[in-house]
Amino acid sequence: MADKEEQETVTSYKLFLRVISKRRTWVCLFLVVYAILLSSSWNSLNSIVDWYGENHKTSSGWPAVYASVLLGAVFGVLSMAAALFIAVPAIVVIWISVVVSMAFAGKSRRRVVVEGRKVTKEIAGFVFRVLLKEGNFVALLCALLAYFVFFNSYSSSS
């Protein structure tokens, strides 16, 4: 009886590993996290759009610029938060692998601690740069898209 349960556990673990190793799984997980973050910030997005609705009647197109920059910033921060949420487990696994490899390579504990700190700083810096670059790209794309949507609604309403 225990052997059958153990075999089912191994089978389900292999299935889990096969599913989690697919890129589609990570893309879907990213989209789910992004949707959760987006729905939680829905009030701030609505307030930006409402503010634009109240102020777009001015003679200039500046409210469209302000609103699109704010929307781009919100979407950029949301995409960085979602990407960080997905990347943290992979970062931890990489960090643990590097530190354990150094320990198995025969380095002293003191040397592992010193080099582990260096590795931690390097990994954190690299992740921060990548997140910033991708977040800025998403923010720019969303700001441009929002500007054209707002400006077209501004032009058609006047």
Rank of each mutant, 00 (worst) to 15 (best):
D3R: 14
D3Y: 15
E6C: 05
Q7P: 08
T9Q: 13
V10G: 04
V10Q: 11
T11P: 02
T11Y: 06
K14Q: 09
L15C: 08
L15P: 03
F16P: 03
F16S: 14
L17P: 03
R18W: 09
V19T: 11
V19H: 10
S21H: 12
K22I: 15
R23E: 13
R24M: 13
R24D: 12
T25C: 14
V27I: 15
C28Y: 10
C28T: 12
F30D: 01
L31A: 15
A35P: 05
I36T: 10
L38M: 14
L38S: 12
S39C: 12
S41L: 05
S41I: 03
N43K: 14
S47T: 10
V49L: 11
D50F: 14
Y52I: 06
Y52P: 01
G53K: 01
E54T: 11
N55H: 12
H56V: 11
H56S: 06
K57P: 06
K57S: 15
W62M: 08
A64V: 05
Y66W: 10
S68H: 05
V69T: 06
V69C: 03
L71A: 02
G72D: 04
V74Y: 00
V74N: 00
F75P: 01
F75A: 04
F75Y: 13
V77N: 01
M80S: 00
M80H: 01
M80Y: 02
A81P: 00
A82L: 03
A83P: 01
L84W: 09
L84S: 03
I86E: 04
A87V: 07
P89D: 04
A90F: 15
A90E: 07
V92G: 09
V93K: 04
I94H: 05
I96E: 10
S97A: 13
V99D: 00
V100Q: 11
M102G: 02
A103T: 09
A105K: 07
G106N: 06
K107H: 08
R110K: 15
R110H: 14
R111Q: 12
R111E: 12
V114G: 02
R117E: 09
V119P: 01
T120E: 05
T120L: 04
K121C: 08
K121E: 13
K121L: 09
V127R: 00
R129P: 03
V130D: 05
L131C: 06
L132P: 02
K133R: 15
E134K: 10
G135W: 02
G135F: 01
V138L: 03
L140K: 00
C142S: 14
A143V: 02
L144K: 06
L144Q: 07
A146Q: 02
Y147M: 07
Y147C: 03
F148C: 10
F148Y: 06
V149A: 13
F150K: 00
F151P: 01
N152L: 15
S153P: 08
Y154D: 08
S156P: 05
S157E: 15
